[in-house]
């Protein structure tokens, strides 16, 4: 694709901290290369703002290669921007034209409070993982990877679910701010493997309990999460979580004594 440069209008959410109100501010950026990533375009803007002695726009980023789940911009009404199966850092400026106005907002969900500008607090996801996203392993030498036979289909589905990077785009896109795609990916990836079997029931119950405690909404199967997921996690995982939850809840006893 031919290289070109563009001038853009950015309408960016600016918010001093979690307690302040926040509002949109408009910035003009000039001579942006079509080969830049979306975050590099923000780097250009921030360099300029810093040189002018102004406050740069705060945004989350880390690996910039689409695997860490840190970048989290809601671009023109879509988490991670217009490209399918792409994180914001992998979105390139060739997705836009000269003269475009781009609206950039933070993830909106009460469970993800804004820290500053485009950065939101996603530690709720960490607490959900802590509630059950683990397996019991003995310490010592690593076991032979092929010691336990695993059905190919299960291994593939588990791997596909494990691709979730926990970016929170599913929550951002969901009209209910539901975290079900994230939680179901984490539940599925362990439930489908024999290694995840010992905690299978407690995992799903504890993770759903924590998810509710964090203030995420309930899933209504609209499919918006799947449509925007940069890792293309299947919504079938949500149905699997529902089944896992129902079986675990129905077979659970009243108490542990």
């Amino acid at each position: 694709m031919e290289h070109y440069t563009m001038n853009l209008n950015l309408k960016v959410w600016k918010q001093k901290n979690a307690a302040s109100k926040g509002k949109f501010e408009t910035f003009e950026v000039k001579d942006i290369s079509s080969e830049m990533s979306f975050l590099e375009m923000f780097d250009v803007l921030n360099e300029r703002l810093i040189n002018e002695g102004k406050e740069p726009v705060a945004f989350d980023h880390d690996c910039r290669e689409g695997i860490c789940g840190m970048c989290s911009m809601y671009i023109n009404g879509r988490p991670h921007g217009p490209w399918h199966g792409t994180t914001t850092c992998q979105l390139h400026m060739r997705a836009f034209k000269d003269g475009d106005t781009i609206v950039v907002e933070p993830w909106r969900a009460n469970a993800f409070p804004v820290i500053k500008d485009l950065m939101v607090d996603r530690t709720a996801f960490d607490r959900i993982i802590q509630a059950g996203g683990y397996i019991s392993v003995n310490t010592g030498n690593a076991v032979d990877g092929n010691a336990i036979p695993i059905e190919k289909e299960h291994a593939d589905k588990s791997f596909a679910a494990a691709a979730c990077i926990g970016c929170g785009a599913c929550v951002a896109a969901c009209k209910n701010s539901s975290a079900m795609l994230f939680v179901s990916a984490k539940v599925s990836h362990l439930a489908l493997l024999p290694q995840g079997d010992p905690e299978r029931k407690t995992r799903v119950l504890n993770m759903v309990t924590q998810m509710d405690k964090e203030g995420f909404g309930a899933c209504t199967n609209t499919g918006a999460c799947e449509a925007v997921c940069p890792k293309e996690i299947s919504i079938a995982n949500i149905a699997r979580l529902n089944g896992e939850y129902t079986m675990a809840a129905l077979s659970a006893d009243n108490s542990h004594d």
Binding site: G77, E105, V228
Partner: peptide, 27 residues
């Protein structure tokens, strides 16, 4: 459920995802 789910996002978006992610009747 409808009221509880709506209460989970107090500050809404300027631009909505709309039909790009889901069907109108599902929402």
């Amino acid at each position: 459920l409808e009221f509880q789910n709506r209460s989970k996002r107090t500050v809404g978006y300027q631009v909505n995802l709309g039909n790009r992610g889901s069907k109108w009747y599902s929402r």
